[in-house]
Structure formats: structure tokens, C-alpha cells
Amino acid sequence: MTIPHSIPNLITLGRILLVPIVVWAIAAGEMEIAFLVFVVAGVSDAVDGFLAKRFNLRSELGALLDPLADKALLVSIFVTLGIWGAIPRWIVILVVSRDIMIVAAVIVSWLFDRPVAMKPLMVSKLNTAAQVGFAALVLASLSFGFEPKPYDVVLMVLVTAFTLVSVGLYLVEWVRHMNTIEVR
């Protein structure tokens, strides 16, 4: 059976298209829909990853789109839940600031004609897993009306720790990379 190379990328694009739906659902107080869309997005992430690896359908576009889709979904959910008052705003600021710092560092390195290869660190993978778990727990608790304590606090601590460690490690690597620039 041959699967077209574009299938995983189309699935990823579909996940990106789910972002405004989940934002609308949270903003409208339709938490069951938000949770369902979040679950669909998670399943689609697993499916596109499986297809890309199992059938050797990896592509440069997919390597760019997949983390973009993940970040767009998570950041949108965190921001919307923060505005809605379902999660503390400080954690939203922390999560969003980390991503802004990483993107800014990449842009600056491009501007200096010193593009930096961005390889995800293990702590960043753990950070993403903690963010997904926290978002899922909050959305599920709002959807099904249960108290998420103490698990929400544990996940907030993990998100905080992994976010701070990952941004620190990325910035150390970026500074090390940028210090190789020759002064003219």
C-alpha cells in the first residue's frame, strides 16, 4: 500500500485549522467541544507522526509544520484559558515568553547570517508533555465538572520547571553559537 507523501502534512495542516475552533470553544464556554477538539488534535498528532515514521513520509515541510501546529495549539489554549481565568496568568506569561524568546533568538541568528539549528532538547519534550497534560486536565475538569487538585498544581510545577530549564538551556546554546561570530 502506497500512501501519498502529503498525507501527514495535510493532517498537520488540519490540526492547525483546529486552533481557531478550540479558541472559540473556550471563549464561548463550550468546554466539552474544546476538550473534544483538543483530543482530536492529539490523535491527529499521533497519526501524522506514525505515518511519517512508519511509511518514511518525513519531509522538511512536515518537520516545520508539526512543531508549529503543536505550539499554535498549546499557546492558543494557554492564552485563552488564562484570559478566561481558568489558569493563572503567570503560567501563561511564562509559557508564551519562552516561545517568544526562542523565536527571537532564531530571528536574530538569521539576521546575523548565523542560522542556528534548532534541535528539540529532551527537557523541551518533557515540557511539551507537561503542557499537554496540564491543558488536558484543565479542559477535562471544566468539561466534566471535577476538581483537578492536586494534579493541576503538580503539572503547573512541572510546566514551570521544564519551561525555565529549557529556555535556559536554549539561551546558553544560542549565546555559545552567536559568540562564534567574527568581529569585522
Rank of each mutant, 00 (worst) to 15 (best):
M118C: 07
I100G: 05
W90S: 11
V37E: 02
E173P: 13
W24A: 11
L111A: 13
K119H: 11
S44F: 06
L94Q: 04
E182G: 15
E30Q: 12
M178F: 12
L94P: 04
D152K: 04
R98H: 02
F112W: 13
E60T: 11
V108K: 09
D66M: 02
V175N: 08
I33S: 11
A41R: 01
A27D: 05
A161L: 08
S166K: 02
L64D: 11
L169H: 12
G14L: 03
V132H: 02
F50K: 10
S97Y: 01
I102K: 04
R114I: 04
R15N: 03
F112T: 10
R176P: 08
W110G: 09
I87T: 09
L155H: 00
Y170S: 05
F144V: 05
S59V: 09
A27T: 01
M101C: 13
V116P: 08
L13T: 10
E32L: 14
E147I: 14
L10Y: 10
P20D: 03
K119V: 13
E60V: 11
V108N: 10
L64R: 13
R15W: 02
E173R: 15
E60Y: 11
R89P: 11
A34Q: 00
F162I: 02
L158Y: 01
Y170E: 03
P8H: 05
S124F: 01
D48Y: 03
T163V: 01
I87C: 11
A117H: 14
